[in-house]
Computed example of a mutant assay.
Amino acid sequence: DFGHWFKAIGDRAVTFDGASQDTPQAHWVGKALQTGDEDLAIGILRMLDCGANNAFDALNAEVNDTARSIEYLNGILPLASEGADEVLAGHGISKETREKVLAKSHCTPPDNYFITSDDMIGKAGVWAHFGLWDFNKAQMFNTLNKKEYKSNKSDYIALLKSRFNYSEEQAEEMYRQITSLSDSKAVNDWISPWPGYASDVRGCSKGGNASTLRCDLGNGAFAAVDLIEMEIRIPTPQGTQWPASFVYPTESGIEEKRYENASIGLSIVLIPTGTDSFANMFVSQEIAKSMFTRLFFMEGHGLSHFDKFADETSLTRQRIIVWKVDWDGLDKNVHPALQPIATLPPEDAIASEGNNTATGSTA
């Protein structure tokens, strides 16, 4: 939303702004924020800097299948140029098209500054919705509305089976889902969810011993965390319940533990806040391990391609963090609260003991 401001004040081009919210960039930027795959996120940013959506345009000119072209791009963006070329060749893409695609997806990119800010928390439903857009579902819906298929169920079922490798039962179920959609909102909701941050960040305190946490969930509810086994449970009068997943920091990055017996449709993210202290929040599972979650709430912990450039709070107490993209990704960020004391210089170790609040850069 603030791209025009960045462009005017920073006197530099932007990847995305309010004028391009109805362009393919909305999907790609949303995907870069939503994905938990740093290599994919960096590949997307490189592609956008090299040529906006032109890599897709060049590829789809030959493939002529939007969903398949997106699938191919998602497969090559995390890779180096040579590997990407091999993958495209494996899909039967011509040498001429491969060269056009890679020129717009794997150039030597310019400097990039990636912004994460407080206002993006409330907008997560929008950027994640675009980022999670299911191009297969969109293609199925649009195809059924074509004249040749709209009144010919048997041909449509045959298409689903051949194009998407569906069984007869799967094709029938997809046909049933699509024909039951009542309006454009139902279609939009069916194609992609609207994930979000379902709670504020809330505190955790030590439980009965040093290896357990009691994390406030609001309204008197709490989650019990075992810091040894990294397990979480939610005691309730109706019995123990579990979240969809539990996302927590390790020494080198982030892990996610999923619960098959989940009774709550949200994930809980454990956030380091200081030496041996934590907070937590409820989040939709689709963005629990996302780049935005890790960059804004976890100081970029475990990421190699984002170096903190600036961390400011506005007059309205909105936090704004600017990350300089490190295209080479040589050094991994470590959250200040998880930095081993033994590796710090003596004066920093003394300061750390006196202040358990995580501050400063992880670049």
Rank of each mutant, 00 (worst) to 15 (best):
A32Y: 01
S105N: 04
F306V: 07
F306G: 09
R68T: 13
D134P: 04
D328M: 10
G302C: 07
Y175A: 09
Y156Q: 13
S180D: 12
C204P: 08
I350Q: 12
N136V: 13
S284G: 06
G122T: 00
I115E: 02
L77D: 06
A244N: 11
V14L: 04
L59T: 09
F282M: 11
D311P: 00
R258P: 00
N209A: 08
G43T: 07
L344N: 08
C215Q: 04
R294W: 02
I9A: 11
D37Q: 10
A223K: 03
L132D: 06
I178C: 09
N356E: 02
K137N: 10
S94K: 13
E148F: 00
L40D: 03
K100G: 00
G300P: 08
Q177I: 00
G51T: 04
T316I: 09
G265H: 10
K147V: 12
S284H: 06
P237T: 05
S199C: 10
F6N: 08
L330A: 14
T275M: 07
S352L: 13
H4E: 13
A198L: 15
D49S: 12
K137Y: 11
T108Q: 12
M120V: 02
A349C: 08
E71C: 00
F297Y: 14
I268V: 14
K7Y: 10
T359K: 15
K100D: 13
L344H: 07
V201K: 08
I271F: 09
G122D: 00
Q241A: 11
S94F: 03
N188G: 06
E172W: 01
L79D: 01
A337H: 10
A138Q: 14
L181C: 09
F56W: 08
